[in-house]
Design a protein around this nucleic acid. Sequence first.
DNA 1: TCAATCCGTATC
DNA 2: ATACGGATTGAC
Length: 687
Amino acid sequence: MTEDDGGQLALVRGKVRKPRAASPQQPAPELPVARVLVDVPLAHLDRPFDYLVPERLHATCVPGARVRVRFAGQDLDGFVLERVAESDHRGRLAPLRRVVSAEPVLAPEIARLARRVADRYAGTLADVLRLAVPPRHARVEGAAQKPASDSTPKPADGEVPDARPADALRPGPWGSYQTGVAFLEALRRGDGPRAVWTAAPGEDWPAALAHAAAATLAGGRGVLVVVPDQRDVARLDAAFGELLGPDRHVVLTAELGPAERYRRFLAVRRGGVRCVVGTRSAAFAPVADLGLVACWDDGDDLHAEPRAPYPHVREVLLLRAHESGCAALLGGFACTAEGAHLLATGWARPLAPERAVVRERGPRVVVAGDNDTDLARDPAARGVRLPHRAFEQARAALGSGPVLVQVPRSGYLPALACQTCRGPARCAACAGPLQLGSAGAPPSCGWCGRPAVSWRCPNCGGGRLRAPVVGAGRTAEELGRAFPRVPVRTSGGPRVLSTVGAEPALVVATPGAEPVAEGGYAGALLLDSWLALARADLRAGEEALRRWLNAAALVRPARAGGSVVVVGEPASPTIQALLRWSPQAQAERELAEREAARFPPAVRLATLTGAPDAVRDLAGLVELPPGTEVLGPVPQAAEDEVVRLVLRVRWADGARLSAALKAAQAVRSARKAPGPVRVQVDPAVLG
DNA sequence: TCAATCCGTATC
DNA sequence: ATACGGATTGAC
């Protein structure tokens, strides 16, 4: 507020006149214009707006600061992108209202990155910034950083001590990879090597990532590692702490809570910590002088952001590596088609274990057919529909340790399928799905409830039913009966175990929830493989192998008695890839299939989802790149009155498609067109 | 001829 | 959302 108002006249007349017209605020002495990204959700307003910096805000209005501005008649938040001497804007500039905090939370490189992510995904910068910069917590900002428990950094008084155990400079697990040592040396030199890493069976991958981080830090640069979930973060935290010593890295996840999250974010932004491990949201962490970005298990769909504009961690990190020239490491026991694509284009190099290492460390993997003749003779085992071979193998393994049983999904009463052709079993009366009743009752229809007596498959004439997905709970129960006296533990859904002991036990887990076993599992059973492979999703094969390899990687080597039984069709190429532990071969095949089917990453694809009118309106406004394929719109199965339209272009036209989509959305938002349309570029799942 | 009102458009 | 400008309408 200014003091020199219209003064005497106002006093004489006994009324206080508004000072505004009489006296504009003094502008800042230098660079009086702030370029501000205002937090508005509208696509046509996705650009900076200039504001006058009043003198009193000169010192605090730094690039990267949060500010409050008057915009279209309301007070809105924004970020200062830069301070400039003059504006291009022809009209009068409004004054900045308030600097929320002088803390430059938005680093220039993150602003650039967010812009590129927004462009890539046809979204707005404001949306990406909401993902990239955590909410402010004023108290944390004011207080000095407090050194706390596990992985909180030391106060920023001086340099972090370089207490680095000698181990940190050894290659560690990387010695087992063809180009592993060279990769580490490149990191230490400060080069930007880029690799797709397929981890060896049983690999201590947190330790491997810790060694890669150590090499990068030794070269004087920062590190960012993103993993799918909290359990992975905990493993990394332990491995990094052990190798790097205390306080050299920080954990950044959304689960920390607002205060702690902001505290650690600030520690990174202020340069106190140079190494960050975390989940999805950490992909935007403002690590200074970044030397390495790494993504573990990039096929895990937890890496796909569910909020607009739906960026994928892998793509965000690859954009960062591309922008900054830093190293990139895409790792996992499996390999995605995207990984294979990076190798095929030459952008990244393979980092694969020697074949001898795979043989030496891998478990024995066998296939058990699941036709009737193979079913276990033991009546208890028959109840669980375990083939004889799988049953015997599990019994043998239980003699020396825990056995992991991976089941596709949780859920207790699944729909039934035909035993012979595996088509869905439907009610003869109303075509509803047939379900298993509880405790020995005959199967019945899930819609009308009629019991299915003398059911016949309309497709193949078969008369027998099978339960396709047996959820973790039910499988645990049945296995408990098949192996009396062996403890059964389950992990999945809301109750996830992180570790189990070395004693014999059946550990039933859903994918992604497999506990690590002390000393490794003696065996693993992979059930219902045909179901995983029969999903409508084009990623079914890739996803199935990823889950199987992640489970098999927790099993002891064959020479220590470790064995994996997969119940399924031996001729399936995906099962063959598991038998041979050849994730690259599978990924190359996947990539070839995607090329043939014209799916990402071979092409760029976008989906428009919303009410039919709205989708049609938006589609009509998009200036499609020449050769764009338009598929649909098709009604969405689950929801009423929602359709999806797919647009597909050559890979090289991806940027053009995104720009065109963004422009079309801008037109719609400017017109206040009714009915939101969700635009997703290369969505992670496409049924 | 002028003011009240409506509509479209920009939002610094 | 709100604010503004230009066009439109209606009353004098």
